[in-house]
Amino acid sequence: MLTVRRLVLLAVFGLGVLLGALPFPSRPGPAGAVTENVTLQVHPGPAAANAVLNCSWHGACTSPPTPGSALDWNNGPNADVRWRSWGWRSVGTGSVALGTIVQEQGMTCTAVAVSVKDVFNFPKGSVRYSHSGTWTPGWSFSIAGSPSWASTNVVVGFTLALENQTCINSGLWTAPHLHQDRVGTWWEVNWGNFLSPGSSYPVFSLANWQYRQSWTWNY
């Protein structure tokens, strides 16, 4: 009798295990399990909202220009250099990334970079603004996104009135301007746009992005 009771209890326990192990297809997923798509567009950074393009896609704006993914924008001495971006995210509204301002000084030219990391701190490359200085190295700012796009427009530096001698001697600088390039091939380049030096562009219109990239979050 005792053995039968044990068998019954064992069977009931086993039935419980089986029920527990069954999948629950109709059950909603865990509250935090969300897949979200993000797109971040970075736009030209000269002070003027309608800015004149000095040099189309290039590495160095020599004659002829060397191949590269940078643009030269008209920007006078001490004029603001701006981080301009539009961010899109499929689910939430708020920051998609943090930008950190970094002052760089290589052997040739002086540059300010904005290092982009998503909100989970995964690096997304950076955008470099050459021939620029900053008063706020190390400062970070929030890069906005929303399902209907959200903009970020922040002063990150200024155009140098005079570059260093090595940069000048290398033929990389003749007058104050903004040379803006991407760092990291994750940035897609808007090759089909900004092809007319001397023309002005409304740099913050959604179509006039200079670089962009997309990523996906699971959280």
């Binding site: 209890l9 326990f13 039935l15 419980g16 295990v17 089986l18 029920l19 527990g20 192990a21």
Partner: peptide, 12 residues
């Protein structure tokens, strides 16, 4: 016992 088994199953 049924509940115990169910919990064990979910954990598995």
């Amino acid at each position: 016992f049924l509940l115990g088994g169910f919990i064990a199953g979910r954990v598995l």
